[in-house]
Every structure is written in C-alpha cells, then in structure tokens.
Amino acid sequence: MTLSIDAQVATMPMAKALNAGLRQAMAENDKVLLMGEDIGKLGGVFRITEGLQAEFGEGRVLDTPLAESGIIGTAIGLAMRGYRPVCEIQFDGFIYPGFNQITSQLAKLTNRNEGSMQMPVVIRVPYGGHIGAIEHHQESPEAYFAHTAGLRSVSPSTPNDAYWMIQEAIASNDPVMFFEPKSRYWPKGEVDLSGSAASLHASRVVRTGTDATVVAHGAMVSVLLAAAELAAAEGISLEVVDLRSISPIDYTPILESVRKTGRLVVAQEAPGNVSVGSEIAATVAERAFYSLEAPVLRVSGFDVPFPPAKLEALYLPDADRILEAVDRALAY
C-alpha cells in the first residue's frame, strides 16, 4: 500500500472512513469492484459508497439487480475471473437469501479446488441495533459466518479501524465478512492516514485496567468504554479489549488480560446461544482456568427475534447491564 510518510490525521465519521478506504482500494487496484443494491447513484442507503460510481464509473460500481444470492454468486464468478468484488448487503437481516452462496460456495471454493483458486471477495454487512429501525434492520448475524470454515469475519469499532480494515479485507485473498456496526457510522473519530496500527485479525486492548476484563466487537466496544468510565468513578478498573476480528479470534491479548485481572465479561448484541461470546467464554475457560477468579460471564441480546424498536433499549446490552455483570464477577 502506498502511503505518505508524513503522519496525517483526519477527523471523520466511520461512514466517511469506509468511503475513503474503499476509494483508496479502488484507486490502487482496478480489479476491485463494488456490487450491491442502490450503491451507485444513491451511494447506498447509508451513503457508504457515495460518489464512487461518479468517480470510477458504472463498470466499477455496479447497481445490481435486487437479489442477494445473485450478488454473492456473481461476485464468486468475478473472483474466479480475477476480480476482487466488494459486495454490499443492504441490511443485516437481508443477508439470508445469500447464505447458501456464502457458506456452501464462497467459503468452500478454495478448499474444493485444493488451494489453486483464491476467493478475494469482501461482503460488507451493516449490522446491529441502536437505530430504532423496523424488523430485519437491526440484527447481528455474525455467529453464522464465524461458524463457517473458509470465511474470515471482522468488525471495526472506530473510524480508524474502518478505514484500514476495509482495505486489508479487500487485500486479503480469502473471503472476508465485513460487519459494519451501523450505529457507529456517524460518530466522528480520528483516522491516521499514515498507516495501520494493527493487522486485520489482531484484537487490541483499548483501555487498560486491573479489576476485570471486558471484551466485545463492533458497536458494543463503545458501550464497554462508557461502562469503564462509570466503573472508574466507583473505583473499579476495567480493561477493555476490542476483538476487531471474530474469525479467527486473536486470543493472545484476551488471555494476557485475563491472567492479569482474573475476571472476564464478554458482551455482544447478538443472542447469546451458540454465539461468539460463548466461544470466547469456552476458550478462556480452557486456557486460563487457573487464572480465573470467577466464571466467565456473557452479556448478550436475548434469545428472541430482535424486538420491535421500542423495546430495543431493553434488548440491547447497555453500560448498566455490563456493570451488573462486572459486579457479579467481582463478587466471587
């Protein structure tokens, strides 16, 4: 990646950072194509691709027919031809028509071809709640994909990570599920245009602490940081880990943190049953059992369909629910 050696820091929301990252990837490699519904003239329903069709042309930014399986399936064919498609799924809950192409084809084609075929396809999925939207527009389906061998799954929590991780995902020769926490599209943050601080699959301690470790990905990271502020006011020191990648999961910083604090709370918007949080809890129990002073606790969405928006504040974990779990962990 060609970069200015001068440090450049810009302040922008995640939506703009993604747009800038996509523009950079498209400028660097003319095999990068964007595909999706309403992503051309409209710039996508969240305007992530705004201006890119005007800049790169209709041959690089494709307003596709309205069919998710068609988008993913033709992206697979384009990847076979040497292209690097970046597909936009309009909303989390609309990914399921493309599920077969993602899990039975995209995820398996490199393996089916004994490694002779690469599948550099990125699937961007705006996901998660907090936006007061109607059914199918606030879900967290990432566990389905984290469960599927052959896929990589990541989720940025900041504009800086969004800018860099989208470019790294496009550069990956493996398929990457790119989960964009849509409630974080608009808050601004600093983007260091001079270089990425962490690789695509590295998890990262974003706040140091000593009493308990709290871990999350995507939008929930900001909830953890808010909880840590509240806890600090009460004299409780929380260490916050941003997973960034949910497949593979980089356990090293999590285990190091747990060995230090002895307590772990995993938070996620998704339902807890058979979830990313469950996997982390099991793995930490296996690998850091003697460091644990308390059971690993999960704070999740409930095991119900995402409720009507007027109930989302009850469904989604907030800082208080995090702190309630931290208190339980500290009580051991």
């Binding site: 399986s69 068609g70 993913i72 399936g73 033709t74 992206a75 697979i76 064919g77 384009l78 990847a79 076979m80 031809r81 040497g82 292209y83 192409q101 084809q105």
Partner: peptide, 9 residues
C-alpha cells in the same frame, strides 16, 4: 451464478 459472474468478468 458463478458462470454469469465469470461471464460478466
């Protein structure tokens, strides 16, 4: 779909 995507390419 793979064939159609390939043919697009």
């Amino acid at each position: 779909l793979h064939a159609t995507g390939y043919a697009m390419g």
